[in-house]
Structures are given as structure tokens and as C-alpha cells.
Simulated assay, not measured.
Amino acid sequence: MLALRLTVFVLLFCGTCGFSRFGFNLINHCNPPEQLVGKFCAALLDNDVNGDGRVDGSDIAKDVLYYNYDDDLCIMQEWEVVTRWTCRYGFSDRNGRFMFKLFDGNKDGFWTTDDFKALNFSNADFLAAQYTRFKNMYCVDPNNRENPVDRVQCAEVNALKPEDVKCT
């Protein structure tokens, strides 16, 4: 019985046998969408917190509370953003770091609500920005296609047209 308990512990928390994020995913409810459009739609759902059809700074200020892994609600560090980006949306660590740098508006090495105050998109514009940012800013760099996750997702975005990015 002790051997069984130890085996379960090792599998869930130590990440052997290919289950490196299994324990983390159980605790943090990681279940990212498989398709890229689903990832964009999950981001829209998370960022239009009040459901008014617009993504603005106040919505994002509420969404980034889910990025908190160190009990400091005012500041999101890069590792927290990468953790959320990979867990919730299923993007690569590299893409998470890219997004962190992109939205660290004042380049202080942290995300705060001040970095997002000026944002104001309709939901359609938010989805278009997700698509354009991923295709034309991230995937255009060949270094961002080295990771197997990025290769698949960049190939997927290249096969999409802007009108294909819809949440139903």
C-alpha cells in the first residue's frame, strides 16, 4: 500500500513518465482549448469580464487577478504570466514571455493594471488583434517556430483567414 501511495505521489507531483504538468493542471484547473481559435476565444471570454462586448482596462484589471500565483495581487511577474499563458491557453513558454514583454508597457519588468488602462477594444477587434499579433508579430520570427507547440500553432494560424476567427 505504501508503494502505491509513493507511486501516485511521484506521478502527480514529480512529473515522471511524461506527466510533468499533471499535478499542476489538477490543482490549477488547466484545460486549454486544443484549437488556436479556441485559445483566442478563451482569451476573449477571460478579458471581457463584464460581458458588455468590449475589452477595456477595467476588464483586464479583473482578469489579471487569475495570474496571481504569489499572493501579490498588484504585480504580475513574468513567471506568473507564463504560467497562466501556458496553463489557461496552451501557448508555449516562449509565447508567454513574448506576451509579457509586449504588454509590459512601461518596461519595468512587471505587469500592473497601469499597463492596461489605455486598452479598449470591441470583442471583434480584440479577436482580430489576437490573430494579427500571433500571425504577424510572433510567428513571423523563425526563432518562434522552434518549439513543437509553436510550430503547430504557427502552422494553424497561417492556415486561418481573419474571418475564420469567430467565437460562437
Rank of each mutant, 00 (worst) to 15 (best):
L26S: 10
I27D: 06
N28T: 11
N28D: 09
H29K: 14
H29A: 11
H29V: 04
C30E: 10
N31P: 00
P32K: 04
P32R: 09
P33D: 08
E34G: 10
E34M: 02
Q35M: 11
Q35L: 11
Q35W: 03
Q35G: 09
L36P: 00
L36C: 05
V37F: 01
V37C: 02
G38T: 07
G38D: 03
K39R: 15
K39V: 03
K39Y: 03
K39W: 03
F40M: 12
F40H: 04
C41N: 09
C41T: 05
C41K: 10
A42D: 02
A43G: 02
A43P: 00
L44D: 01
L44A: 08
L44R: 09
L44H: 04
D46Y: 07
D46H: 13
N47L: 08
N47V: 02
N47S: 15
N47R: 05
D48F: 00
D48C: 06
V49N: 03
V49K: 15
V49A: 13
V49P: 03
N50I: 13
G51Q: 06
G51L: 07
G51C: 08
G51V: 07
D52Q: 07
D52P: 09
G53L: 10
G53E: 06
R54C: 00
R54W: 12
R54S: 06
V55I: 13
D56R: 05
D56P: 00
D56V: 05
G57K: 00
G57A: 06
G57E: 03
G57C: 06
S58T: 14
S58R: 14
D59L: 05
D59H: 02
D59G: 10
A61N: 04
A61C: 06
K62E: 12
D63A: 15
D63H: 11
V64L: 15
V64P: 00
L65M: 11
L65W: 00
Y66A: 12
Y67L: 14
N68D: 15
N68T: 13
Y69G: 09
D70F: 04
D71A: 14
D71M: 05
D72L: 11
D72Q: 13
L73T: 10
C74L: 13
C74V: 07
I75Y: 12
I75D: 02
I75G: 03
Q77K: 15
Q77W: 07
Q77D: 07
E78K: 15
W79C: 06
E80A: 05
V81K: 02
V81C: 12
V82M: 12
V82E: 11
V82Y: 00
V82C: 09
V82N: 02
R84N: 14
R84Y: 14
R84S: 13
W85S: 13
W85C: 14
W85K: 01
W85G: 01
T86G: 12
T86I: 04
C87A: 12
R88M: 12
Y89W: 12
Y89H: 09
F91Y: 14
D93I: 05
D93Q: 13
D93A: 14
R94L: 15
R94M: 09
N95D: 05
G96S: 08
G96V: 07
G96M: 04
G96T: 03
